[in-house]
Design a binder for these strands. Structure first.
Lengths: 243, 243
DNA sequence: AAGTGGTCTAGACCACTGA
DNA sequence: CAGTGGTCTAGACCACTTT
């Protein structure tokens, strides 16, 4: 068995989880099939079993795998649609792309301005704030699947940062400045509102799962606030709950 | 520093998390204060640092602690009451009670029968199945806040088990038989459907956050399936997401 | 009995924070 | 700079499933 290499800067379990997710979507391991044992995966990738377990736990938490003690780890049989673990912090565009769709982002608003009092509060902040405000929609293979409002704390960004540079993921735009969110606190709502959607393509029914989030840096400082309306039934949000 | 003892049968990180939670609610460690370092806690409780980290991660995931690299682990200052997370597995009646309401459960259906093919599939099972089926609504201070359908795998229950005995939490009914779910895989949806509600009191708008769940025993065997429609805006579902 | 995942330890080294 | 959390390893032993 050839040793596979993990090389980028992200934690090993995250990289390994990506590899496994890839091999599943490639059809390397089919739904219902058993994965190699944790020890075999550890040997194959040249990492410790603890690292493998951490990676598999991530995937099990998003419902892609099911682990049965003594029996093995199995690929869940999934239905169509964009499936994602609700507790995995990933950008909307990545969620879409990871499911094999072509993701396109359409902007309605992209501006640099002073935050309102309300917005300052939402960002858990005190004093006045410069922010970058975005309003955009996400298309998967040409079909609209989500609408989003974002508010980025611009105080931490260099003055030269231009909102027009943001084309895809906000995370990708923040990363070069070392401002990658590590955690988000989200509130979940159902919304039925025809005024949410805009643009040439609209969902048939204005029904959405709405995620209201504040993202925090590893230091604990809030960096962005966002509200995303996911078109109902275009996404499958999986959540593993435990005691 | 006296060594504290952890003794029951649950995993060490779970026990330790409970201890820390207790000491916080006792006022031992106040909101905003820094906890002892991971190594100090490990020494104090006579466990490894990995165990301490696992315990603290649990608490951070439900928002009770905030961990800052290099600086320490801090007790979150919960301004407007503690809101527990969506990823904590709790019964619907407990969720309601924890929001500070008086919970009342009204039954529309409570029967013992053979499962349909569809239901067998939902319970991740193969052969024919005896089930207990429930349809009920939850009132909080007299106002309807949720509707729920439940399906309990009755094969594991003694024949004497009477559906009419179920009055509050399904979990409470299963516990005496040692059938306490350890994990649930949930799917989250938005629903706008006037046919969901029933009974004398109905929500003003038929808009719901819908949680579709299969509960699993520690062995990995599915024990119940449930679909709960939470009336939008009656609940605040908080979720901590991380990388 | 053999093989799987579940738990836990001890220790190493790195990255970050704050004095 | 010392002290904190972040990551990762190697190995031990246990509980459970399958053969």
């Amino acid at each position: 068995m050839a040793t596979r290499r993990l090389r980028d800067a992200r934690p090993l379990p995250v990289q390994l989880a990506d590899q496994v997710r890839q091999r599943i979507s490639d059809g390397d391991w089919e739904p219902g099939h058993r994965l190699p044992s944790e020890q075999q995966l550890a040997d194959e990738y040249g990492v410790s079993r603890a690292t493998v377990r951490s990676a598999l736990r991530r995937l099990a938490e998003s419902g892609l795998l099911r682990v049965r003690q003594g029996a093995g780890t199995f690929v869940t049989s999934h239905r169509d649609g964009i499936r994602t673990g609700l507790q995995d912090l990933r950008s909307t565009s990545r969620i879409i792309a990871e499911q094999g769709y072509t993701c396109q982002v359409v902007y309605r608003l992209r501006e640099h301005r002073q935050a309102t009092e309300d917005e300052v509060r939402r960002l858990d902040s005190t004093g006045p704030l410069r922010v970058i405000a975005l309003q955009r929609s996400f298309l998967a293979d040409g079909e609209v699947v989500a609408f989003e409002h974002d508010l980025i704390n611009a105080e931490a960004l260099p003055d030269t940062a231009d909102p027009a540079d943001i084309t895809g993921s906000v995370f990708d735009h923040l990363e070069p400045f070392g401002l990658l969110p590590a955690q988000a606190v989200a509130r979940v709502h159902a919304v039925h509102d025809a005024s949410v959607g805009w643009g040439p393509v609209r969902p048939e029914t204005p029904l959405y799962v709405c995620l209201d989030q504040v993202h925090y840096l590893p230091s604990g400082a809030p960096i962005t606030w966002s509200r995303t309306w996911f078109v109902e039934d275009k996404f499958e949000f999986v959540l593993v709950r435990s005691r």
